[in-house]
Amino acid sequence: MRAAILALGLAVMAAPLAAQTGPQTCARMKSEDRLGPLSEAQCQCNYSVANQVLDADIRALLFDAWYSGNDNMAKVEQLRPRHRVRREMLQLRDAIKKYCS
């Protein structure tokens, strides 16, 4: 039951973000000076890789954090199974190194 509620919450949260694209997200991050050392092109590459590598629940939380600046780490840590989240984040890191560096 708890998992169903969490999944529903993520689906509701992801719905408004579905309209946001990588370029829109990265442009917003740039305008709010949240890109750090990344260029806008690197940000868009990272977005594209994350879109391909991550499951929908993790992707929704990550893209929400990137677009809005929300800290979603507590929500990410609640996702189960934990090894799946860790594995996907490592895959994301490796794919970004490979394709976006």
Rank of each mutant, 00 (worst) to 15 (best):
M13Q: 07
M13G: 00
M13Y: 08
M13T: 03
M13A: 08
A14S: 10
A15P: 00
A15C: 05
A15Y: 14
A15W: 13
P16N: 11
P16Q: 08
L17F: 10
L17R: 03
L17G: 09
L17E: 01
A18T: 04
A18G: 00
A19G: 00
A19V: 10
A19S: 06
A19C: 03
T21I: 11
T21H: 02
T21M: 04
T21N: 03
G22M: 01
G22P: 00
P23Y: 03
P23G: 06
P23K: 07
Q24V: 13
Q24M: 14
Q24T: 13
T25H: 04
C26K: 02
C26H: 03
C26E: 01
A27W: 05
R28V: 10
R28L: 13
M29Y: 06
M29W: 05
K30W: 09
K30A: 15
K30D: 13
K30R: 15
S31M: 14
S31G: 14
S31F: 08
S31T: 14
D33A: 15
D33L: 12
R34T: 12
L35W: 09
L35S: 08
L35A: 09
L35I: 06
L35C: 13
G36S: 14
G36A: 14
P37A: 13
L38W: 12
L38G: 04
L38K: 14
L38D: 11
S39W: 10
S39H: 09
S39Y: 10
S39G: 14
E40Y: 06
E40R: 15
E40D: 11
A41T: 13
A41G: 11
Q42C: 07
Q42G: 04
Q42I: 03
Q42M: 12
C43L: 06
C43N: 06
C43T: 00
C43D: 00
Q44M: 12
Q44H: 10
Q44F: 04
Q44I: 02
Q44A: 08
C45E: 08
C45K: 07
C45V: 06
C45F: 04
C45H: 04
N46L: 11
N46P: 03
N46M: 13
N46F: 14
Y47K: 03
Y47F: 15
Y47D: 07
Y47H: 14
Y47I: 01
